[in-house]
Amino acid sequence: MIKVEGLTKRYARTVAVDNISFEVEKGQIVGFLGPNGAGKTTTMRVLTCFLPPTSGKASVAGFDVQENPLEVKRRIGYLPETPPLYPEMEVSEYLRFAGRLKGISSADIAKRIDEVTGRCALGDVRNRLIGKLSKGFRQRVGLAQAMIHNPDVLILDEPTSGLDPKQIIEIRELLRALAGEHTIILSTHILAEVEHTCEHVIIINKGRLAAIDSVANLTNRLRGAEAVAVEVDAAGGQPNPTEVQQRLEQAPGVSRVVMKDSKDGRIRFEVESLQGRHIRAELARAVVNAGWNLNELHAVGLSLEDIFLQLTAAGQGAAEENRKEGEPKQ
């Protein structure tokens, strides 16, 4: 549905997006993840035909963004980073304008407005001036605007920013419900958001692609080794932490043991396994055989957060090099 090939976007001094390629299948919901200044907004602006690429190609539903912008725009609903709202308009009036602009006939517009105000929970504010709405409501009006013409593709730049936790959950549910029928790309810096909402994730850092995979795969791929949290009861000062640490280190398959803390009569460790080994049973046995009480033992998967830091830290050096080359000679 969306295809990006060797996309580069250069501003006067910076290379905002540097030779990235990816594809998004119809019906997928993809998270676009990266720190500030990574180039997420820029990529989205190219996809929505707001900015032309410096080089490379991007196409939506088979239409190239440069050769056929009108066809691309017809199929895209876009929520920019700052929702594009006219404060002097009422919500329904604004949605009518946006809908008509996107080609909905005047016969259908009322039905569409009902539909999106319902989905974005805007029923109560339909006749309020946009300028007088709270930030969360404005964000939702922006989202409603993106959905008004029921587009095949939704491109949402930080759709949940400014929303309260309850609304965030509602929007996530809404997006999951929309996926399948619609193809969705959403950008965010919040990892939990991608884990909860998206099937696939595209990670970019400093304009370069760091990883692209399904959320599940990516977590697995980087996990290889298992990390386990172990808590041993040490009420009354027995056993002493070093002794426990030694025992755990001797268990088969263990590569490293880190003591996290030791207080209130509990000692906590984080134990990492060798590549591809499962060590939970061994750890339990080691503790119990020594005659200690095992309080807790559970796997701590590497979170997307760890993955993200790992990936972006690894990519950093290379990206830095590349930026220097890309800059015009003084």
Partner: peptide, 14 residues
Amino acid sequence: RTGTIELLLTSPVK
């Protein structure tokens, strides 16, 4: 200034 130009320029109008 307000960014609404993004709405106009990404809508299917010339």
